[in-house]
Amino acid sequence: MARPRVLVTRSIPEPGPSLLQAACEVHIWPEALPPPRAALLEAVRGCHGLLSLLTDRIDAEVMDVAGPQLRVISNLAVGVDNIDLQAAARRGIAVGHTPGVLTEATADLTWALLLAAARRIVEGERYVRAGEWQTWDPLLLLGTDVYGATLGIIGFGRIGQAVARRAQGFGMRVLYHSRRTMPSEVTAQAVDLPTLLRESDIISLHAPLTPATHHLINRDTIRLIKPGAILINTARGALVETAALLEALRAGHLAAAALDVTDPEPLPADHPLLALPNCIVVPHIGSASRQTRARMAEIAARNLLAGVHGAPLPHAVALPAPSAEE
Rank of each mutant, 00 (worst) to 15 (best):
I159F: 02
H206N: 11
G152W: 03
M182L: 04
L140E: 03
T187S: 13
D220Y: 07
A188D: 09
L231I: 07
D201G: 03
Q168K: 13
T210P: 08
A212C: 03
I222A: 00
Y176W: 00
S200D: 05
Q168E: 15
L197V: 00
N233S: 02
I154H: 10
T181P: 09
I159Q: 04
F170N: 05
A212M: 05
R120I: 08
A212Q: 14
I225Q: 01
A149P: 02
W133T: 12
L224N: 02
Y147V: 15
A162S: 12
V186Y: 01
I222G: 03
I153Y: 07
E185F: 00
A229H: 08
F156M: 06
R180V: 04
G171H: 11
P138G: 14
W133G: 06
A118S: 13
V186N: 06
T144F: 14
L209C: 10
A167I: 09
V186R: 10
G124C: 08
T135F: 14
L141W: 06
L216Q: 00
P194F: 07
T221L: 02
I154L: 13
G171Q: 13
P227C: 07
R129G: 15
T195R: 14
R120K: 10
A164N: 10
E199H: 12
T150E: 11
A164G: 01
R120Y: 08
L209P: 13
I203A: 07
Q161K: 10
A118G: 04
F170A: 12
V174T: 12
A190N: 10
Y147E: 15
Q134S: 14
R119H: 14
L196Q: 00
P138N: 11
L142W: 13
L224Y: 12
T181F: 01
V122E: 12
L141M: 12
G124K: 02
V146P: 01
G131V: 13
A229C: 06
G155W: 04
W133Q: 11
I222R: 00
P138V: 13
G152K: 06
L151V: 10
A167D: 03
V146A: 12
I222D: 03
G124R: 06
W136N: 05
G171M: 05
I153H: 04
E185Y: 01
T150C: 13
M172C: 11
T144I: 11
A207I: 10
N218P: 03
G148N: 10
E199Q: 15
G228N: 11
S184Q: 06
S184P: 05
L193N: 06
H177W: 01
P194Y: 07
L224H: 08
Y176M: 03
A207G: 07
L224F: 05
S184V: 08
D220F: 06
Q161G: 00
G155D: 06
R120S: 01
A229W: 05
A167L: 09
I217A: 09
G160S: 06
W136S: 14
L197A: 03
H214Q: 08
W136P: 09
G124I: 13
L151Q: 09
M182H: 08
D220G: 11
L140C: 08
S184A: 15
M172L: 08
I202G: 01
H206Y: 00
F156T: 02
I154T: 07
A188C: 08
V191N: 09
L216N: 00
T221A: 00
L216R: 05
H215K: 04
I153V: 15
A118K: 00
I154N: 08
G171E: 11
D201K: 11
P194D: 05
R219A: 15
